[in-house]
């Protein structure tokens, strides 16, 4: 049986002591153990940033690629080897800024992967510039007089674009987050979880400030109701409904029609098309004698 010990990495963690990223790491570890996934059945995919270092701190397969490009790489990985539980874990700058376009189209595609966004509302590794989710008016180490543009509304964007699992988590609630991540990973199709992860070095508000403003998604919320999900996603800037905003099983999963044709295994194990079949296609270019 898989235990949290199986996931423990010996790699030195470079995060700031006390960073809420540790909460996400522990919650993810617990979610994977709860789901009974062994490390070799899991592939973590990340871009660049502090959050994107997470794959080094959990023992499983990992792709730590380019800034902003975790999503297309994860899609390729999952199409080629669908037996892997593929999880993108990266920051808001990486997934909403540099790679925002990929996320938008991932919502449309609905690949069977999980996307966990460590949303700290700041560029931490580059020392304190605005991220796509920094609130308007908030001063930063670059926008000295305050950010002058609106924050990205990615939860709402996910709902609007047909993402099949849309949730918000809170890094300060280990119990709730591990349950939420387990649900996200178990969902078939794209699961998108924006996790509030206050930056303790560059962030404006401490964890405690968010703790006071985090509220559970109302118990009577119908997560299959897109309009209700949208209004929760667009709730006031100072209140954060946490939980599953939207979930549906009524959308085909990316690459399903291809998989119906070729079966389930890793593409590496499928037999290569025969020589004769290619030669027949080459022969079809011969213009026959009249």
């Amino acid at each position: 049986m898989t235990t949290t010990q199986d996931y423990r990495s010996s790699i030195e963690n470079q995060w700031c002591p006390g960073c809420p990223n540790y909460g996400i790491l522990t919650a993810l570890e617990r979610a994977l153990v709860a789901l009974g996934r062994a490390p070799h059945e899991v592939c973590l995919v990340s871009g660049i940033g502090q959050a994107a270092k997470l794959p080094h701190y959990l023992r499983c397969h990992a792709w730590n690629g380019l800034h902003g490009r975790a999503i297309p790489a994860a899609i390729g990985i999952h199409v080629a080897n669908p037996a892997l539980t593929t999880i993108v874990t990266s920051g808001d700058g990486d997934l909403y800024g540099e790679g925002g376009n990929h996320l938008l189209h991932a919502f449309r595609r609905n690949p069977d992967i999980t996307v966990i966004v460590h949303d700290n509302r700041i560029y931490a590794l580059t020392k304190g510039q605005a991220s796509p989710t920094t609130p308007r008016g908030e001063p930063t180490r670059l926008q000295f007089d305050g950010v002058e543009i609106d924050p990205a509304q990615m939860l709402a964007t996910a709902v609007v674009h047909g993402c099949t699992f849309v949730a918000r988590g809170f890094a300060g609630d280990l119990e709730g987050l591990s349950t939420l991540l387990a649900r996200a990973i178990a969902h078939r199709g794209l699961s998108f979880v924006d996790v509030i992860q206050p930056c303790i070095t560059w962030g404006k508000h401490p964890l405690a400030w968010y703790r006071e403003r985090v509220v559970p998604v109302p118990t009577d919320h119908d997560a299959t109701d897109r309009n209700a999900a949208l209004s929760l996603a667009l709730d006031s800037p100072d209140r954060f409904p946490v939980g599953v905003l939207y979930e549906t099983a009524e959308k085909p999963v990316f690459a399903e029609s291809y998989r119906v044709r070729v079966g389930d295994g890793p593409l590496a194990r499928l037999p290569r098309i025969g020589r004769a079949a290619i030669q027949a296609r080459l022969a079809a270019f011969v213009v026959n004698k009249d």
Binding site: A73, G76, I77, A80, N81, P266, A268
Partner: peptide, 18 residues
């Protein structure tokens, strides 16, 4: 959606054996 995604998807697939 763009050429960056095109090559990144292909690289991901390649890393996963295809």
């Amino acid at each position: 959606e763009d050429e960056i995604a095109a090559i990144e998807m292909a690289l991901g697939a390649s890393a996963a054996g295809a």
